[in-house]
Design a protein around this nucleic acid. Sequence first.
RNA 1: GCCAGUUUAGCUCAGUGGUAGAGCAGCAGUUUUGUAAACUGCGGGUCGUCGGUUCAAAUCCGACAACUGGCUCCA
Length: 687
Amino acid sequence: MDFEIFTLAATMCREYMEADESKQPERKTLDDRNRMTDLERLRHSCAHVMATAILRLWPDAQFAAGPPVENGFYYDVELQHRISPEDFPAIEAEMKQEIKANRLFEKVVVPREQGLKDSESGRLGGLSERPGNPSKFKLGNLADIPEGEPITYFKSGDFIDLCAGPHVMRTGNIGAYKLTSVASAYYKGDENNPQLQRIYGTAFKNKTELEAYFNMLEEAKRRDHRKIGQEMGLYTIDADFTGPGLPLWLPKGGAIVEELEKLAKETEFLAGYVRVKTPHIAKEVMYKTSGHLPYYAESMFPAMRLPIENEAVVQARIRDIQKNEDRFMDEVPQNSEQFEAFIRDRRSTFTREHKELRQLEAGLEAGELYYLKAMNCPHHHRIFAAEPRSYRDLPLRLAEYGTCYRYEQSGELFGLMRVRSLNMNDSHIYCTPEQFAQEFNAVNEMYLKYFKIFGIEKYVMRFSTHVKEGLGKKYVNEPELWIQTENMVRDVLKTSGINFVEVANEAAFYGPKIDVQVWSVIGREFTLATNQVDFAVPRKFGLVYRDRDNTEKTPLCIHRAPLGTHERFIGFLIEHYAGNFPLWLAPEQVRVLTIGEDEPLVNYAKAIVQELRANMVRAEGDYSNDKINGKIQQAELAKVHTMLVIGPRDMAANAVSVRVHGKGSLGAKPKAEVVADILAAVRERRA
RNA sequence: GCCAGUUUAGCUCAGUGGUAGAGCAGCAGUUUUGUAAACUGCGGGUCGUCGGUUCAAAUCCGACAACUGGCUCCA
């Protein structure tokens, strides 16, 4: 392996990490703030009202920052008393008084000295001066305001706050509000700063909108993939024995996994992909080359140490070479003429042996460590490297449902959405620059095809690009390649009419990337997958193809995973469909329910189940002696897609009575017709 | 990892220091059925784990674990 390239990559990686750590959040300009939407204004004003209410109850409270956020607002407060949801009614009651008083939000521009004075006296973020209790966080905020920018207060009743606004006219404009939760946060997001209590709330123009918001939350709760996953028996997380973040797919969830893989395999086959299969572990050198180690070691499972098979032989050879080197040093002549002849004579042997020594030593040290893979790309790169490649072999599209392991922090784990073992719908497309646009476009088309199948109507592709200043630091220093690949990506996105936004300075280290965000039917946002253009790592792995002109060139690599991971994608689908999967995905597609348990009737039902199963339909039979209403209830609660109710009347007519989950009874139909329709719906993956 | 909350039967949950409960699910019977639950009975628990306080702990205290909300949003 090429040590220089590795060293270079390591250096760049380190620089990237350091650059990332020191990244300061950019300060919002006053212009940005004035672009606040009406709703944000209202929520920010509500934060002031909440602060006023908290001060009425606990006058010594110290406030830090209280911005509007996506679904409401918060205010960070330092207070001896630990605020809990039990305190919310009291705070809300005080807020009600403030809003009823309909106080004016008055803006006052003050000189900096005034700001300092009012911070010292505790007046800022307070209802009155508080001797001995200065507004320390406001003082800190004041220091962040650049010279020349005006310093403004907003005053509503007794409450005066250091604040750039903007606000609504009067507290009475706040139509409907509610406190929602309390969390902890560090002042200015820095863990070296004091920890504050963050009180979250939300506010709307009127009660109707507030209620609609809470109804949406309720609906989201009903659809929560953890709840439905439990109820439907899709997966379980056995924290005690298997481990946290390591989901076990139960048979019903396994059925969904299988269907998704089938879909991916068919789609990818038709798109000219070839399937590969790679192990779950690899030697340390793999991840040193890829750049994961040591800088990403924290998000990988700790290494396992394997004994080196021929350690004794290796060590004997190392000793031999070391002896040779010692002898070489001893034999070096003092005389300069002889020295040159000596060097000429011995140089090639010495360098060969020295290189071997370094390799053996590295092998002793590195070869014994194995890591669980956090990504499939390195394995795929090695498959590319396994044979000499010609431009005629490209594009080479290696696809695999690969299982990766990432050691997410325990607090980050979340149902199926954030796990430690993940099955990726992964593929790496190696292509020439000339082929890039077409390949990238084909990937996008695959996304759109999937969106259609799953009824995903709202999506956006976030196209992240580099900025020149970051070259060689945050981004690999290849100015032309960046511009070239970004232009190619942008052109494809534009000409294909795909919905995308471009975000500067958020690209990956190795190349521009596209994050795909989708919205479920109830409007919850999910990040499904990341597409990445990679022009750096293939080079680190020394991947080349021989081009028409008989020179070796490094291929471009497109990293894509339209179905993301099984874990996250199925989590999304559960919430998207509320567990009511379309027939082709439904864990239990058909259940045949008999009215009574007469033998001929049960035999007729069993024959139908058999016929469906012979056609790979997941069909079950309920031949128990429960009442038919009871059986239907059971099947509906289990979200069985199609129920075939069979009584003596149906058997006599060689028919079945069809009932579809959520749609009710569809009446009796000829058996053959029903079976044919079920098979067609599955085959076509009907919504 | 940090802050907070939660953890009682397979599931959903009640139980504020004095004999561990309900519904559903499971099992055994009875019932013989036409589109969202027929009836009876039975089994099922070291109350997350470990330690402490107490005559007595599911209940009070502490540690740990798992789960959940938050930890990106900046006057």
